[in-house]
């Protein structure tokens, strides 16, 4: 017999058990968002290719051709695409997961399930786009006849890292957005600025050595460097302190994100 106790303040243990019980809902909500996203569009899923492709061309022209940034001997489009792969995932998933609770307010006010499911599943939805883009990268690498180095084996670690950054930031924004809709305006800024202060269109090696550590405070720097290192084997040895900073930041972000989300979750239905 299942026994449930509802008290002022709520119960923690129950929550994680419920999260497990509702594990299939992660999949269903992500599936819903994917199904819905391209309904009544003309080219459908192709959109998740067109966007990165066009951005890649623009960034290549602006930074590679006009800005004459160093490519380290690699085809510039490839360099850009390896940076864009995690960046696009981060920016779209952060925007979508940040908005996820508000977008699903009808669910929140009418039915119980751990709200973490909503935000996490919206990150998962964007992850599918990430995989499609990754396939395109494979095509691009074949086109440029560029074989990945042995460091490719570390790629899953950096994928996990970018997932962590995104989830951490997404949880914070989603929970804050419930009460402060201001974040609806803040998120587009973050995405816009982030593109320039992260090494998407250029390599982080162009940053003067003495600023490298400061620069690495942006966790996406470590993530993007990591992706380039794994996929292209950037000539310069990777900037290890930068990775370390990124890893610590991700752990803090995810832990604090879950903490804040859990803290405010109980009042979501009252505030939303």
């Amino acid at each position: 017999m299942t026994q449930l106790v509802i008290e002022a303040g709520g119960t923690e243990r129950e929550y994680w058990r419920d999260l497990w019980r509702y594990r299939e809902l992660f999949y269903f909500l992500a599936w819903r968002d994917l199904l819905v996203r391209y309904k009544q569009t003309f080219v459908g899923v192709t959109w998740s290719l067109i966007r990165p492709l066009l951005t890649m061309i623009v960034l290549t022209v602006v930074f590679g051709k006009l800005g004459k940034m160093p490519s380290g001997g690699m085809p510039y489009p490839l360099l850009v695409f390896c940076g864009m792969l995690p960046w696009q995932f981060f920016s779209t998933a952060m925007a979508e997961s940040g908005n996820s609770l508000v977008a699903n307010s009808n669910l929140i006010s009418k039915v119980y399930f751990p709200r973490l499911v909503i935000t996490v599943s919206s990150v998962m939805t964007s992850f599918v786009d990430f995989l499609i883009s990754a396939l395109f990268l494979v095509v691009l690498m074949i086109w440029y006849r560029y074989a990945p180095p042995a460091s490719l084996l570390f790629l899953p670690f950096f994928v996990l890292l970018v997932f962590g950054v995104t989830l951490g930031v997404g949880l914070w924004i989603a929970a804050l957005m419930v009460e402060y809709r201001d974040f609806r305006f803040i998120v587009p800024f973050m995405v816009q600025f982030g593109l320039y202060i992260s090494p998407v269109g250029f390599q982080s090696s162009v940053v003067p050595e003495r600023f490298r550590l400061l620069y690495a405070l942006n966790p996406m720097v470590g993530v993007i460097d990591g992706f380039r290192w794994c996929l292209l084997g950037t000539q310069n040895s990777p900037y290890w302190p930068g990775f370390a900073v990124a890893v610590i930041e991700v752990i803090v972000l995810v832990a604090s994100g879950i903490w804040y989300f859990r803290k405010t979750e109980q009042t979501f239905a009252d505030v939303i």
């Binding site: 017999m1 299942t2 026994q3 449930l4 106790v5 509802i6 008290e7 002022a8 303040g9 709520g10 009808n106 669910l107 929140i108 006010s109 009418k110 039915v111 119980y112 109980q266 009042t267 239905a269 009252d270």
Partner: peptide
Amino acid sequence: ILSRITVPTEGRIRIDGRIASLLEVGTG
């Protein structure tokens, strides 16, 4: 509160058994 959509300010509820609530038809 019984459906766990919101938490009580004071007090306590004990429920024995699997509970389902239908506050709206077609939620989601």
